[in-house]
C-alpha cells in the first residue's frame, strides 16, 4: 500500500481519478483501516485528505456553517457556536465511537463509508445539510440524503471527494435532535437512529418538520410523510402519533443480533417521536 498526503483538493482529486490502481480516500481511518485489518485486503494506494486545509476546518459566516469533511468529531463537539445552532447534528457526531474514535472520525468518512447505521447521517439529513463534492469535472452541491445509495455504495463519481458540509444559521424557532438506541450505553451500532429538525410558529404550531432514520433500511432515509404529519399541529397527541406511525411505516429493516425486524419497526416510531419532542423543546427555547 502506498500512502499519499496531498495538500490541495486538485491534487487529491487527481490522485483519486487515476485508474489502474485501487485507490481509496483516507480521513480518520476508523472505518477504512479497521476494514483493511479485518478483511486483509488493502487498496494499492490511500490518499490522506487531512492535510488539505479546506477539509480540516470549521468556518462560520453570516450564511451559516461550513464543516470540513475531515474535521474529527471531537473538534465538532468543542465548537460552541455550532453546538448552540445545531445541537442535534453535534450530539450525533459525538455518539460516534469512543473518545479515541472521536479524535479521528469525520463526517465525510461517516457518510462515505455508507453504513445504513452511520449516526451523523440522519441528523445531517434532518437538518437539511448539503455537501460540496469536488471531482475531475469540478464542484457540485448535493443534499446529504442523495449521497448514500445502499450499504457501502455512494453516488460519488470516480475521483470525487466530499469537501465540506453546509448548514445554514437556524431559522426562527427551529430546533434539531438526534436519538439513537443501542443495546448498551456506549460503543455499539445503532438499532435505530432518528434525527428530527422542526420549526414552530409563535403559538407553538409546527411549520416545518424533517424526520430522518438510520439503521432501518439499506440506507439512511428521509421520511417526508412523518414530517408532514406534524405540520400545522402542536407537537403533541395525535399529531405526534401520526409522525410516529409514518416513521414506522417507512422502514424496511433487517433482523440481526441487535434487534428483530418487528422490534426495529416499532422502535423507529418511538425514537422519531421522542426526537421530535426534544427538537420542539429546543425550538421553543429559541427566539
Amino acid at each position: 500500500m502506498q500512502y499519499w498526503s496531498p495538500g490541495s483538493i486538485e491534487e487529491a482529486v487527481g490522485l483519486l481519478s487515476e485508474t489502474g490502481a485501487t485507490t481509496r480516500a483516507l480521513a480518520g481511518g476508523t472505518d477504512l483501516l479497521a476494514q483493511i485489518r479485518i478483511g486483509g485486503q488493502a487498496p494499492e494506494r490511500v490518499i490522506d485528505l487531512k492535510r488539505i486545509p479546506e477539509l480540516g476546518r470549521i468556518d462560520v459566516d453570516a450564511q451559516g456553517f461550513r464543516i470540513g469533511a475531515a474535521v474529527c468529531s471531537a473538534e465538532i463537539g468543542e465548537h460552541e457556536e455550532l453546538r448552540a445552532a445545531w445541537p442535534g447534528v453535534v450530539e450525533a457526531a459525538e455518539l460516534i465511537g469512543s473518545t479515541q474514535i472521536q479524535g479521528r472520525a469525520s463526517l465525510g468518512g461517516n457518510l462515505c463509508n455508507a453504513s445504513p447505521a452511520a449516526d451523523s447521517v440522519p441528523a445531517l439529513i434532518a437538518a437539511g445539510a448539503t455537501c460540496t463534492l469536488a471531482g475531475p469535472d469540478g464542484r457540485r452541491e448535493v443534499r446529504v440524503e442523495d449521497v448514500v445509495l445502499g450499504p457501502g455504495q455512494t453516488s460519488l463519481a470516480l475521483g470525487e471527494i466530499v469537501v465540506d458540509f453546509r448548514l445554514p444559521r437556524p431559522q426562527y424557532r427551529t430546533g434539531d435532535a438526534y436519538l439513537r438506541l443501542i443495546p448498551r450505553s456506549e460503543m455499539d451500532i445503532a438499532v435505530v437512529g432518528a434525527g428530527v429538525c422542526l420549526s414552530l410558529d409563535r403559538d407553538g404550531h409546527c411549520t416545518a418538520c424533517r424526520v430522518a432514520l438510520g439503521a432501518v433500511a439499506p440506507r439512511p432515509i428521509l421520511v417526508a410523510g412523518a414530517g408532514e404529519a406534524l405540520v400545522g399541529h402542536a407537537v403533541e397527541g395525535d399529531a405526534l402519533a401520526a409522525l410516529s406511525a409514518a416513521a414506522s411505516a417507512a422502514t424496511d429493516p433487517i433482523d440481526d443480533m441487535r434487534g428483530t425486524r418487528d422490534y426495529r419497526i416499532r422502535v423507529a416510531g418511538v425514537m422519531a417521536r421522542r426526537a421530535a419532542v426534544i427538537a420542539a423543546e429546543r425550538a421553543a427555547s429559541r427566539v
Binding site: L26, G29, L33, V46, Q100, I101, R104
Partner: peptide, 9 residues
Amino acid sequence: RLVCSCLML
C-alpha cells in the same frame, strides 16, 4: 488528541 495507534498509519 487521544487516538488509537492501531487505526493510524
